[in-house]
């Protein structure tokens, strides 16, 4: 659906995206996970044709350059910075963005109504955006990306600065889209979000793609082994193991195990393993 082929983009002497090669498959949710400044937003801007690569190319469905308006019509974008007209109401914003993508008449009305319903803003549709909470604005930002029923949806840090209620609503929305077979790129620096929402995760840092795969693949390849944490008469024992049941039996055979738990590795550990830094550094 979307392909980056050896894409490079610099701002002056700063390399924002460095030899990025990546393919987003139709019907998958691909997470771009990396710390702030990793080049995630630049990658999104390249994908929507806002920026031209210095080298390499970005293709939609293998042929279309997103700098062409005709190709961009197939994309839906929720940028990281809220891009809404605060003096217009929620419904007026969605109607306007729908018109920008060529919708009109009944189709426009239906899609606007669906989008408002989808993000849970139907009751506040006629209120001006200036009166919305931060979370409601984020949800409307998401709705503006969906109003024209795009084939590829790019969500750039869609949960930044939102309250837990709106965050959960946005998660549910994305999982709904995933269930409906939508194709999404989801950028985040929260590994929990990537692990929960994405089919595959691309870990990026300093503009480079460090690893790509499903969460399990990444954990298996780059994470530490699972850790068995057991409380014995000799105190707490932590054992890295690929076969925790065998280790538990071994501990029970030589003493008493009062309690135990398994600690699975995280994407945080994967990032640490790949870069030597924490994701939140």
């Amino acid at each position: 659906m979307l392909t980056f082929e050896h894409v490079r983009k610099s701002y002056g002497t700063t390399v924002a995206v460095d030899d990025l090669s990546l393919t987003v498959r139709r019907g998958e949710v691909l997470g771009l996970l990396g710390p702030n400044g990793a080049g995630k937003s630049t990658a999104v801007n390249l994908a929507v044709g806002l920026l031209a690569p210095d080298a390499g190319r970005v293709l939609i469905d293998g042929v279309g350059d997103p700098r062409s308006p005709r190709v961009r019509a197939r994309l839906g974008v929720a940028p990281q910075a809220l891009a809404l007209y605060e003096l217009l109401s929620g419904v007026e914003n969605l109607r306007f963005f729908g018109e920008m993508y060529g919708l009109a008449g009944t189709a426009l009305r239906n899609r606007v109504a669906w989008s408002l319903e989808f993000v849970g803003l139907t009751e506040r549709a006629r209120d001006r955006v200036a009166e919305y909470s931060g979370g409601m604005k984020r949800r409307l930002n998401l709705a503006s990306a969906l109003v024209h029923d795009p084939e590829l949806i790019l969500l750039d840090e869609p949960t930044v600065g939102v309250d837990p209620q709106s965050r959960n609503q946005i998660f549910e929305n994305i999982l709904d889209l995933r269930r409906q077979g939508g194709t999404l790129i989801y950028t985040t620096h929260y590994m929990e979000e990537a692990a929960r929402l994405c089919d595959r995760v691309a870990i990026v840092d300093k503009g480079r793609l460090l690893a790509l795969g499903t969460v399990d693949e990444l954990l298996r390849t780059h994470g530490a082994r699972p850790t068995l944490v057991a409380q014995t008469e000799h105190g707490e024992r932590r054992i890295e193991t690929d076969d925790p049941l065998a280790e538990l039996n071994r501990l029970a055979a030589i003493g008493t195990v009062a309690a135990f738990q398994m600690e699975r590795p995280t994407l945080e550990q994967v990032f640490l393993q790949l870069t030597g830094r924490s994701l939140r550094d």
Binding site: R70, R72, A73, V77, P79, A83, M100, Y101
Partner: peptide, 8 residues
Amino acid sequence: VRLQMAPL
């Protein structure tokens, strides 16, 4: 910028 991301 949002408008530039639209097919305009």
